[in-house]
């Protein structure tokens, strides 16, 4: 069995406003194995970015906080790590590619100096060596004329170029875990494909474990080994990519898959899940998806379904798939 690099258990992260607590991440469980690519999918606002920021220890401190659960990196508890220890881990062990590449770079420093900062924070090497390494990294992510690029500023680069710079920065210190938060959303299709190839190479050549956050199931199918489907702060279904695409169980996952445009069949209208993602904290009880679910019955609105894992590792959080008490004995299920 492969080693687990990252284990997230019952992670809860909230934001606090005068109106009260907003549970953006509401009990999330998953793990990441060595060399694995895990996809996390879900609609906008379901808590994907907040989950990754929680792992990085970068939840905005002015109004946000990890309020519960555990994040273990190679067995080490990160939610209780000191600020100093977290600084050693960030960038070196776990690195992240942020969602907005343009604004994620500092506008007043050159690309080179920002890359070199990432490199020199964790490696005691000279400026010259760091500059060489920076150029090397820019070449690695497929940026042309890297030796000129290091003297340029973020506003002189396109969005796609900024995104590559962010990737170069994230992988510069050879992290064990790379969290990529929608790294392709802002890019056009051809560049998207190049970036995905790049991630695949990193994964294969450096054995980097990757968490790939996206709301594009096409990206998941292309890249990931396993996928977790997130809805309103919770993971509702998880399993290997093949299983999830062929036998999705959760009505939300089924809806997501149905709404992928299929170029082979020209449909009059694309399917889309009716309704909207509820704002975090507005649903007090029951399944978070119940109000949009065509199969919902009474219990769905009253009780929160538990995650049920079948023997093939396919996990689902839905009463349709056996979490009612009487069914427990019939099926060989493990509760998480």
């Amino acid at each position: 069995m492969t080693r687990k690099v990252l284990e997230v258990k019952d992670l809860r992260t909230s934001f606090f406003s005068p109106e009260g607590e907003i549970p953006a991440v509401d009990g999330v469980n998953f793990h990441l194995s060595e060399g694995e690519i895990l996809g996390i999918v879900g609609e906008s606002g379901c808590g994907k970015s907040v989950t990754s920021l929680s792992i990085m220890g970068l939840v905005p401190t002015e109004n946000g906080k990890v309020v519960g659960g555990s994040i273990r990196f190679h067995g080490e508890e990160l939610t209780k790590a000191t600020a100093k220890r977290m600084r050693q881990i960030r960038g070196k062990e776990i690195a992240m590619i942020y969602q907005e590449p343009m604004s994620s770079l500092n506008p007043v420093f050159t690309i080179g100096s920002q890359l070199m900062e990432a490199i020199r924070t964790h490696n005691k090497i000279s400026r010259e060596e760091a500059a060489k390494k920076a150029i090397e990294m820019l070449n690695l992510v497929g940026l042309p004329r890297a030796d000129e690029l290091i003297h340029e500023y973020p506003h002189q680069l396109s969005g796609g170029m900024c995104q590559r710079v962010m990737i170069a920065m994230a992988v510069a210190c050879g992290p064990k875990v790379l969290i990529a938060d929608e790294p392709t959303t802002a890019l056009d299709v051809t560049i998207q494909a190049q970036i995905l190839d790049l991630m695949k190479n990193l994964n294969q050549e450096l054995n980097t474990s990757i968490i790939m956050i996206t709301h594009d199931l096409g990206v998941v199918a292309e890249l990931c080994d396993r996928v977790a489907v997130m809805y309103a702060g919770k993971i509702v279904e998880e399993g290997s990519v093949d299983v999830i695409f062929q036998q999705p169980k959760h009505p939300y996952t089924i809806g997501l898959i149905q709404s992928i445009p299929d170029i082979r069949f020209k449909k009059d209208r694309l399917y889309s899940i009716p309704g909207y993602v509820p704002k975090p904290g507005t649903i007090k009880k029951g399944c978070h998806f119940a109000q949009r679910c065509e199969h919902a019955f009474d219990v769905c609105k009253e009780e929160t379904p538990k995650m049920v894992v079948s023997l093939d590792g396919h996990a689902v959080r839905c009463f349709l798939h056996g979490t009612l008490k009487e069914e427990k004995h019939d099926r060989n299920i493990i509760k998480s």
């Binding site: 990085m56 002015e62 050693q88 960030r90 942020y98 994620s104 770079l105 500092n106 007043v108 920065m169």
Partner: peptide
């Protein structure tokens, strides 16, 4: 509160560098 500050923290640099280098330099404008 801007994104680039989070990036700087994400590199693992010290809080002093985050504030005095990244934030202050932009605030000076």
């Amino acid at each position: 509160k801007l994104d680039y500050v989070r990036t700087a923290r994400g590199k693992g640099v010290s809080e002093a560098i985050v504030i005095y280098k990244h934030v202050l330099r932009n605030s000076l404008i």
